[in-house]
Each structure stands twice: as structure tokens, then as C-alpha cells.
């Protein structure tokens, strides 16, 4: 393997990894506040991508289509929480997790009926002239995805550490009962986390669509990889989710380069299982969600 090839594998890993990271952020956010693993996370990303594509095709300029997608998915995520999660609040996390499985199927079917079954494209935000670094190349869209991820992580860090609402969310993660006793509205925190994770997923989907296209079935693979990334990094910590995504993407890229593309997923998932075996809280997780 030459240095140039190595760099290209890393770039490919970053492209895929940043996509996984954006999906992983949504998982993290909901899990952090509620303990729910949202199986519909990949579908929210898909919905974001397809909404942006749909609005763009309807004639809206790209930035407006992007914002429109955020609003649509925000509404869907809030309705999802109100209709599927809220009524099951008393039944416990497991029932709510099952509800998210149902929601994922419902969203996928709805998307299929609205946008059809074939993949749809979205133009890249700033052209598709590749950026060349030492003989390897990267599309500008990848930088958009990476940039969006960084902005979201910084915003989340600020929100969690500096704002009262953010602190209330963290309080709920640490001890929901105590938080409620302190006057934090647990129901509002759950609603808020679904809403924010919806917006982040929509941003992710709209960012990713120019790279990999989007179809009603795209959410499944994105959800799977995003969840793997979130688990690898450590559920509950946004920064860890991003590192998890990038690690998973780069592992896959190198697996193609060093072994073969046929074994790529197997290698990535075996490493994930090994990591979980040694560190069940994930590579970077633990401190934030730790509670004994």
C-alpha cells in the first residue's frame, strides 16, 4: 500500500465515518435523556434527506430546502414522541424501544409511498470538484458533513454544559427521579431530546444525500451503522459518538485496503463486539452516563 492509497482509504473512512457519526449523534441524544434506543433514527435521517430532495425538486433553492427538511423532520420527531413514546411512558423503556421499531417501519413505508422506491439525488452544496491532498481526493460535500458534525457537537457541548435546560437534561440522564424531585419536567426533557435529535438527523440526511443518494430504504443501513458507531464510541456522549463514527468508517476503509471489501463489515463488527466485550460502555463512554 502506498502512502497515497493509505490516505485515500482514510478519506473514504472519513466520508463514511462522518455519515455514521451524524446518525450516531441522534442515537446518543435520545439515549442520553431517556435510555431509549431509537430504532427509527436511521429513518429520521432518511426522511431528512428525502424531504430536502423533495423540496428542492419542488423548486425551492437548496438552502431553503435544507431548512424545510429540518422543519419537516422536527415536526415528525415531535409527533413521533407524542404519539408513540409519551403514551408508553409508564410502561418502561422496553415498550418504548419496541414502539420505535414500529415507527421505523411506518416511516419507511410512508417514505416509499411519498417518494417512490428508487434512490433520488441531491446536488452537492458547493460543487463536486474534488479537493486533492497529496494525491488523494475528497469531495467538498464530505467537508460539509464533517463541518456540520463539528458544529453540532460544539453546540451540544455548550447546551449540556452551559445552559440550564441542558443541565436539566443531564440531570435526567443521571437520575430521573431526583431530577423530577428538583422540579425538572421529565416529559419536557424527553420531548426536547426527540425534537433536537430529529433536527440533527434531518441535517445529517440532507448533507449525506449528495454523497450517497437517498431512498426509502437507506435508513436501515444508516441506522445500523449509526448505532454501531454510537455503541463503539459510548452511548450517551456526543463527542464519543462522533469518534465512534469516524473510527468505524476508517476501520472499514482500512479493512478494504488491507484485506478485502468482502470482509469489510465483518471486520468492523468483530472489532465492535471485541470493544464491547472489553469496554461495555464504549471506547470513550462511561463518565457522563455512569451511575452506580
Amino acid at each position: 500500500m502506498t502512502g497515497q492509497q493509505f490516505l485515500q482509504y482514510i478519506f473514504s473512512g472519513i466520508t463514511n465515518g462522518s455519515i455514521y457519526a451524524l446518525t450516531a449523534l441522534g442515537f446518543t441524544l435520545v439515549y442520553n435523556a431517556t435510555g431509549i434506543i431509537n430504532f427509527a433514527q436511521g429513518e429520521l435521517v432518511m426522511l431528512g434527506g428525502l424531504s430536502a430532495i423533495g423540496l428542492y425538486r419542488a423548486g425551492l433553492p437548496l438552502p431553503l430546502a435544507f431548512v424545510g427538511a429540518l422543519i419537516i423532520v422536527l415536526i415528525v420527531a415531535v409527533m413521533f414522541e407524542q404519539l408513540a413514546i409519551r403514551p408508553l411512558m409508564a410502561k418502561g423503556v422496553l415498550a418504548q424501544v419496541i414502539a420505535t421499531v414500529g415507527a421505523s417501519l411506518a416511516l419507511r413505508t410512508a417514505a416509499m409511498m411519498i417518494w417512490g422506491r428508487e434512490a433520488l439525488p441531491l446536488p452537492p452544496f458547493s460543487g463536486d470538484t474534488p479537493i486533492r491532498v497529496l494525491g488523494a481526493s475528497l469531495t467538498p460535500q464530505t467537508l460539509w458533513v464533517v463541518g456540520t458534525t463539528i458544529v453540532i457537537v460544539l453546540a451540544l457541548q455548550f447546551f449540556y454544559k452551559r445552559t440550564l435546560t441542558g443541565k436539566a437534561v443531564r440531570a435526567c440522564a443521571v437520575n430521573p427521579l431526583a431530577a423530577r424531585l428538583m422540579g425538572v419536567s421529565y416529559a419536557s426533557v424527553v420531548l426536547l431530546s426527540f425534537a433536537v435529535s430529529g433536527v440533527i438527523s434531518a441535517a445529517g440526511g440532507a448533507m449525506v444525500a449528495p454523497i450517497s443518494f437517498m431512498s426509502y430504504s437507506s435508513g436501515a443501513l444508516l441506522g445500523l451503522k449509526g448505532f454501531a458507531a454510537a455503541t463503539l464510541g459510548g452511548l450517551g456522549n456526543p463527542l464519543a459518538a462522533v469518534f465512534g463514527g469516524l473510527t468505524l468508517g476508517i476501520l472499514e476503509g482500512l479493512a478494504v485496503g488491507l484485506v478485502s471489501s468482502g470482509y469489510k463489515d465483518a471486520i468492523a463488527f468483530v472489532i465492535l463486539l471485541l470493544v464491547l466485550f472489553v469496554r461495555p460502555q464504549g471506547l470513550f463512554g462511561g463518565r457522563v452516563v455512569e451511575r452506580e
Binding site: F11, G13, N16, S212, S217, V256
Partner: peptide
């Protein structure tokens, strides 16, 4: 080299 139908980026395989 091979890929899965919904894969997002194939530059690694092409490289």
C-alpha cells in the same frame, strides 16, 4: 472488489 447495494462511498474499493 465488492460492495453492498446501499453503500455510501466506494472510493476505498476503487483505490
Amino acid at each position: 472488489e465488492s460492495y453492498k447495494t446501499d453503500e455510501t462511498d466506494l472510493t476505498a474499493q476503487l483505490t
